[in-house]
Design a protein around this nucleic acid. Sequence first.
DNA 1: ATGCTCAAGGTAACCGGTGTCATATTTCGC
DNA 2: GCGAAATATGACACCGGTTACCTTGAGCAT
Lengths: 360, 360
Amino acid sequence: MTVISKTAAGSAEGSTETERDRRRPTINDIARLAAVSKKTVSRVINESPFVKEETRARVNAVIDELGYVPDPQARGLAFRRSFLVGMIYDNPNPQYVVNMQQGILDALKGSGYELIIRPVVRSDPNFLSDMRAFVERQKLFGVVLPPSVSEDERLAALLNEIDCPYVRIASVPLDEAESMVVTHDHMGGEAVAKHLLAHGHKVFAHISGPLTFRSAHERRRGFCEALAAAGVSLPDAYVMEGAYTFESGMACGEALLALSPRPTAIFTGNDEMASGVLQAARKAGLRVPEDLSVVGFDDFQIASRLWPPLTTVHAPTTDVGRIAADRLIRGEDDGRARRYDPDSILPYLVVRESSGPALA
Amino acid sequence: MTVISKTAAGSAEGSTETERDRRRPTINDIARLAAVSKKTVSRVINESPFVKEETRARVNAVIDELGYVPDPQARGLAFRRSFLVGMIYDNPNPQYVVNMQQGILDALKGSGYELIIRPVVRSDPNFLSDMRAFVERQKLFGVVLPPSVSEDERLAALLNEIDCPYVRIASVPLDEAESMVVTHDHMGGEAVAKHLLAHGHKVFAHISGPLTFRSAHERRRGFCEALAAAGVSLPDAYVMEGAYTFESGMACGEALLALSPRPTAIFTGNDEMASGVLQAARKAGLRVPEDLSVVGFDDFQIASRLWPPLTTVHAPTTDVGRIAADRLIRGEDDGRARRYDPDSILPYLVVRESSGPALA
DNA sequence: ATGCTCAAGGTAACCGGTGTCATATTTCGC
DNA sequence: GCGAAATATGACACCGGTTACCTTGAGCAT
């Protein structure tokens, strides 16, 4: 182990020795031991092509020996940019948030970037100024914007203005720029329609999320269009707008189950509302899936805890988060970032026990 | 609005003007406009007592006018410490994680500190070295350690060694230092016992979490001790060790419901396992709460989504996170940090519909 | 008047990196 | 074998703050 010391001359004192070892090595230590200037060490760190192979090897040897890692703060200060990736979100579902965080963290792992999270309330009057202060102060390397924050054009404009890279996650393309990951939620809705049609259902109903959310709109669109394609019409009374909440699911469920003819299958915009519909069915004395098939969207943990276990659309939130963060730190100019297998991030149906054949 | 410029002389060009306005003001801008040295501005920022009131007011006026906020990276570099608080956790429950994050973020809001999250796998062979690299590299201001990471003595020792402040969250005091927030989980277990006793139950069962977790041990202890105090014994066969998972709850539930006499009340170490017990009861053809009372622990969202809605112990995770982070950034030497109302962070019972009178 | 203390503020170096530009060393064409 | 171009490296200022230390002047005892 090489001794790190500020001056070339070393002291023999034990305590001094210890102190030195405790200090993390800096670029100056590397430079001195490798007998090059700190600028050259900097070049090696940043993979500049203008370093002789021999020099590079020597510097890297010292770096490895001392376990040197550049200080992100100092680097950030000089770069005028930090190595922090922000996640700004207003999704109230814990499972969604954690899944997305996990995906982003997976992408960041080992890259030297760290994740800094920021739940927000978009209706707060200070929202935009808070965001500006946050991003500018921390000099964020970039931010990931999941729905519905991703749909906020004011925020996108602000980020453009202050020159902060971002990746928007949404169910449909929102701009031409490549700074997006599209989740194609309508395909999930289609899959549900096909599943229920295959089981012989004739009377369907749908409870969407708030239609101000693209996801709610897309999930509904996929479902309705697939039904229409099969020649099934969905009267207005059988399509309700919920709030993506348990309570709204229960309320809408009660309303739909009071209709005549009663729907034999209800598709809800998320699992939360599906759990509400299950409660409503129970109160109405209906058996699931014998009297009523219920299908949700998201495939969060709760889906398998419900009774009966919920048939639902799996939304690949973690994958989407990983791809978004990956794109952010790899940079848009790197073709590889977009060369993922599209199939891997499409929603797909998970059939459990809450859906079944329509019993005449 | 005062114009920011590097030199005293200003240019009249519009484009130059714009560029200047875009640049965030630095300590040098403040110093120049307030006609003091940057060191004095630094003194004002750090609330040094050695600044004349008049000077302080002048500097603050300029700071306010320009909306100046010191650069955390530069400050951190000089301080040799960042303004980032870490949360290191291995709890797999999304709701727990999000609640705790929320509490920490609440405490950090407006303080200039930011949260950086770090899910870990404690059994990973690189766990400790990863943590060392993480904390040292980012020069974390401090870390919050929820269970079960908080119970890792190796990690605590490491943090002590590298001189990184931390607050441990656990159900029992782990060390004499004040760097702890104690959740007193056993009181939740007691409350459950009293509730069930009051409903006339005679045959109880308990499914604990893994006993390597303090929380599992404490929740069980509170329950068993309160039963014992009432003269009720709990045979070994009626106390099982689960894994805090849905599956383990279901498996243990099936085993317990096969016992004779069959328990009329089951208390589980968390809501996940309670949902497993509900499934087991359903499979066994038992009605809840008529044939079986089920009580969980945590009071996560899922509790009210289950059927029947789950009676459970509310664990004040968000409050605990807030207090922990508060203590971290206020500093241990500040008496106020510990002067919270103890009652506000104690677990308490939430009675819903999964528990009721024991029917003879 | 002299010396001492202490409040108030300034100067310069430093924290650990990077940008710019100049300089030294190769490489190569002819 | 020589000059130009390309490659490789270093010197120095700078990013935006802070620490260490010095200076100044006022107040006060001697």
